[in-house]
Design a protein around this nucleic acid. Sequence first.
DNA 1: ATTATATATGAACATATGATCATATGAATA
DNA 2: TATTCATATGATCATATGTTCATATATAAT
Lengths: 117, 117
Amino acid sequence: MVELDRCEINCIHDEAVKAVKEALFSEDIAISLAELFKALGDPTRVKILFSLMTRELCVCDLAAVIGASESAVSHQLKILRTLRLVKFRREGKIMFYSLDDDHIEKLFAQGLEHVTE
Amino acid sequence: MVELDRCEINCIHDEAVKAVKEALFSEDIAISLAELFKALGDPTRVKILFSLMTRELCVCDLAAVIGASESAVSHQLKILRTLRLVKFRREGKIMFYSLDDDHIEKLFAQGLEHVTE
DNA sequence: ATTATATATGAACATATGATCATATGAATA
DNA sequence: TATTCATATGATCATATGTTCATATATAAT
């Protein structure tokens, strides 16, 4: 608040701030977006999601593929489920997980472009 | 390790694990990808980046637009700079920040699709 | 019914993160 | 060159995060 006052007098470019503020999406959307990206922001979850891009897998297989404990994988799957990034179906004792939609593929493709360029 | 042994006997679908393991990218890439997404996984940084999609802005303007302290913005800009998500140019005392490439726009577009559907 | 198996969940712990405050830097101006 | 201003940085602290271990649940098999 105090800083805003000082700033308005000295440095702020008023029209720029006003214009950008109007274009800025809502707090809610910013938080949702951040939550989505945060879910993708962990190596274990990245590996889980990338593994599921090939085919559906059970928790045990996922753990073996990415080299993590089944408990750790299960915990991370819960986060991915909450954000509707993965879905699952039960077959007896086994839960098969798969990607919930194709957004992840596209996000990964974009992300890889940035990372590998 | 112990769990792997137990698992191999009981639950693992060997060919599936083998196939997916081969398709899986390297540990390094997984970590880089996670770092990129993690950088996008914070409301303050999301707002900064989205603001910069409209036009270049100085630290002071950014702080005013998103309603955060200039110090907080500066700290976050450092993270974004490290990951080559933003670039900057100096004009006297003022630093103007802008997006470093167009990947962020595409990532945001994809992310918004998921979040708002 | 009892046991085994696949997965889920809760508690605990170490580490990471983001904001704030104080201070430092670097450029313009008096 | 002394001061002011815009930004950067370091320290600190409260909170969040991810793993592990122990335990619970749900299904299948005996």
